[in-house]
């Protein structure tokens, strides 16, 4: 029965949202009951109203656009550099890989926040240093996952391709690339998350626009509802981006049984 199914879905939904609803209700009640100070932690209703106002005034959109532009540029540059580099290191130059791998591991392990001042010193405090540091953090997961993805392709697939007389280029296009795609996507998804972390950090250190700037500036002028509204916006944006990545991944690899959310 359709209605049975619907009731079941509704029940699952209710169960899944119960903790969130309870949390929000508790948060809403706490300042009214005098458990927390609404000056420092305003109730969700106040934050929601502020979020709505920010959205109407266009302020939120301007800062979101600024943030997204930085993430997008840094991310695209990272893909453009790290993907081909990963293919080359993983697929062709075995000796080169042995030589550069330790260096890459060290560079990849360096805490990017400590490197941000270096980027500012080299590229100034404008857009370039922010895009630069986002590119920096994005390239490592893509590079490492691409290299290991290409290297761990089952040799039997390569044998099949070779036995059918494929050229080197076709072997790469038709065998190596699709076989390594799941690992490559893991890298891309990780780097999208890293990009967001780094973005907010960079915008908090030296910026005049962006969601990170909005948070730190609201805090400086003690506009707590605005600060929380910005934090919620960042969280929602992160969820949205992760959702888009998973949709994209599912589409690109429909042959996979299941891709965990």
């Amino acid at each position: 029965m359709v209605s049975d199914k619907f009731v079941k879905k509704l029940k699952t939904f209710a169960l899944k949202s119960s903790a969130i609803v309870a949390f929000v209700l508790l948060w809403e009640a706490a300042p009214h009951l005098g458990l927390i100070d609404p000056i420092f932690i305003p109730p969700p209703s106040v934050i929601a109203v502020k979020l709505y106002q920010l959205l109407l005034s266009g302020e939120l959109l301007v800062h979101t656009a600024a943030s997204l532009e930085r993430v997008f540029l840094g991310f695209i540059i990272a893909l453009a550099i790290a993907l081909p580099l990963g293919f080359l290191i993983g697929g062709w130059f075995k000796t080169f890989e042995t030589a550069v791998d330790p260096l890459l591991q060290v560079l990849g392990q360096a805490n990017p926040f400590t490197l941000f001042p270096v980027f500012m010193a080299l590229l100034g405090i404008g857009e370039l240093s922010k895009i630069g540091i986002i590119y920096w953090v994005c390239q490592w997961p893509v590079l490492f996952n691409t290299v290991s993805g290409i290297k761990s392709v089952d040799p039997v697939y390569i044998k099949v391709g070779r036995s059918m007389g494929l050229t080197k280029f076709n072997l790469f296009k038709k065998v190596l690339l699709p076989a390594a795609l799941p690992a490559i996507f893991t890298g891309i998804r990780m780097s999208a998350v890293f990009a967001f972390f780094m973005l907010i950090g960079a915008e908090m250190i030296g910026a005049h626009s962006g969601l990170g700037f909005l948070i730190i500036q609201s805090q400086a002028v003690f506009n707590m509802p605005k600060m929380y509204a910005s934090i919620v916006s960042v969280a929602l944006l992160g969820i949205a981006i992760n959702y888009i990545m998973i949709k994209f991944e599912r589409k690109a690899m429909s042959w996979k049984e299941d891709i965990a959310a």
């Binding site: 044998k159 099949v160 059918m164 007389g165 065998v175 795609l181």
Partner: peptide, 27 residues
């Protein structure tokens, strides 16, 4: 290698990203 000598491997040599038809069309 030559297409005149086709190899059938032990197992799991099908490309998981291709359908049955896509696998047979591969060569």
């Amino acid at each position: 290698p030559s297409r005149d000598r086709a190899i059938v491997f032990q197992q799991n040599a099908l490309f998981p990203w291709r359908t049955t038809l896509g696998n047979v069309e591969f060569g």
